[in-house]
Amino acid sequence: MGERALGWGLKLLGIALFVGPFIAAFAVHNWDLQATVMPSQEEMDELKETLSGLFGEGFSEDTFILENPTYSGGKIRIPVRFTSPLDLPIKITDLSFAISDQGVEVAQVEMEETEVEIPANGTVDFTLIGPYTGTPPTDPQFTDMNITFEAYGVTLQMQVGQGGEV
């Protein structure tokens, strides 16, 4: 009798520990399935705010400013000022593009630095460098732009075909 009662008691305890959380969780959320299973609206709002806040005002023509290039020793050097619109620290690990003059590719430039770290909403200066011989281009265009960012260890690589004037 006692053994059987204990057996049933333990079985019921096991069932209660399995079914109880269901009932308790639904009861605290007034039997609302979505509120019980999904994260709270407050958490979702905070997450949305964090994600939308990351991109700040977004990229604009002031994000990358290419200064006047210099030509010396068979090389072209283009100083770049990058103003991050992002609310998070990022790294630029690659920035390269081709320079064309009158429709003919005359140079290929890439970052002199291995990588550039930019604090949230910060500004950094770095240099693009590439081999160049001949006279300075009269109507320079940059094409085949490659840029690689890294944030939180996640890499975003972008390729842009046609650019603007250097």
Binding site: F26, A35, T36, T50
Partner: peptide, 16 residues
């Protein structure tokens, strides 16, 4: 991105 995400149902199950 440092923002915690939770579910009441999962929380109660784990408590059990």
């Amino acid at each position: 991105l440092g923002q915690p995400i939770s579910s009441t149902l999962v929380g109660y199950f784990l408590l059990a």
